[in-house]
Design a protein around this nucleic acid. Structure first.
Lengths: 152, 152
DNA sequence: AAATAAAGTTAGGCTTGGCTAACATTCTGC
DNA sequence: GCAGAATGTTAGCCAAGCCTAACTTTATTT
């Protein structure tokens, strides 16, 4: 039923190619979503180690706002993926790779946060939004954010 | 082992309160993540209806970059949640609620996109990043984005 | 040093969101 | 109008992330 295009504003022409720009964008989003949790954990672990000398699951749970068993399972995945090392009933350590990732994340987080604040947002809102936005900012956009904050 | 705080930069003090600002931010991110897919679908369905007169699962699958059964399952959830109506082997319709959500999403998407472009980003990068960012932008931040685009 | 408290783990359950394979229905072209 | 193509559905698999309940280990307190 109905196949006519009203050729309006939006880019929704029946494009037979498998390389749909929109589809690519969504695939990128899904990809980003998969790494989000790992990035948040690794970044948090780095902070805890810096602040407390160690990263204990109980503190991770508190800061992440989840329960202990959730943390345990997630840490297992992070260990499997080579981002952390851990021993039973002991606190958590970052691998070299984990440390590198944490550094990147922190840098990115701060650029986004600084950018939002330099736009005039209050720090609380900026922090909350940065937490969600940071994982979806491409390198190019990040560069633009950084430049903007600098020159404003 | 070790419980001394080096009282450095980051807000990682052993705060006993359950109301951790960080935890709240993460909970917000998780909340946003839950509605993301629904929002993307509803927005896409609105576009397809507008462009083609109807929203067929096959087109949704193509645009979303997923397979048909994934679309079917997701549409069932959207129907369950009152955002769409559908009949077997037929195309999809938005409910009043779905239409309202689609409108909001579109508005938000366009504000974010316009904002990124007004920062000087190329349209392709802007589009890709907007797709991910839009779900994590608070009303306050959105207002700031809109104002910025207007006055620049 | 024994008892209690705190932290960590394990087992098991649930939803989401992706997939393939197999089957059902609808549409199209001859 | 019928055969083949396109589309849609169902069944069943899997991993991620969340949870509670029950148990073990470690840490603290007296």
């Amino acid at each position: 039923m109905m196949q006519d295009n009203h050729l309006e504003s939006m880019p929704a022409e029946p494009d037979p190619r498998p390389h749909d720009a929109r589809a690519e964008a969504f695939q990128g989003v899904r990809e980003a979503r998969r790494s989000e949790l790992a990035e948040d954990y690794v970044e948090l672990i780095a902070e805890l180690i810096h602040a407390n000398g160690e990263a204990r699951p109980v503190d991770i749970a508190t800061k992440m706002g989840v329960k202990a068993p959730t943390v345990a399972k997630t840490l297992d995945r992070l260990a499997r993926d080579g981002l952390i090392t851990r021993a039973k009933y002991r606190s958590v350590f970052l691998t070299e790779e984990g440390r590198a990732l944490a550094g990147e994340c922190r840098r990115r987080h701060e650029i986004v946060l600084r950018f939002l604040i330099s736009l005039g947002l209050d720090p609380e809102t900026a922090e909350r939004d940065a937490e969600g936005i940071e994982h979806h900012v491409s390198a190019r956009t990040l560069a633009v954010f950084a430049a903007f904050s600098d020159r404003s």
